[in-house]
Amino acid sequence: MSEQVLNSKLINANPTIYTPSKTSHRVLTEQDEKEDIEDLIDAQEVFDLIRSVTDPEHPLTLEELNVTQLEHVTVNDKFNTVSIEFTPTIPHCSMATLIGLCIRVRLLRSLPERFKVDIMVRKGTHQSEQAVNKQLNDKERVAAALENTHLLEVVNQCLSTAGFRGEPIVRH
């Protein structure tokens, strides 16, 4: 009873936790340290940017909640396109837009301007898929949302762990 009262604010109080696969880390090669070789931006690199973003509801990362997965990131460096599909933890999750916004802001700040970035809810994983997608890919609506200082603070909070890139997070 009291648990319900206490957790009443959470949309999904007890989500499933996934252990990140160990092999999904890029190992530095000799090539990475050679001056003249050009490293193209690839899916792993973009996934690394977003995997450790914290979920707005839990002190868990998007990767731990399986919201983002490497397989659902597509990158074409030559054609300047990035496409991300993410999976809300439950189909009626009202946090979906916020999560998408966090991903959007993270990539706005971290990818070269030349990229066109599409962020979508993965097909069939959310009730109002289309509405969410529309919001997330409308530049003006994104900009308007970030005008809201409170919202921006929440986004910044979620992004504060993004730099861990899949490494274990030390929270204080």
Partner: peptide
Amino acid sequence: DVLDDKKRIVRKEAVNCRS
């Protein structure tokens, strides 16, 4: 501009720094 550095390890630091 540095976000588009041709080396990945540099881009990583640029992202960290900018963030």
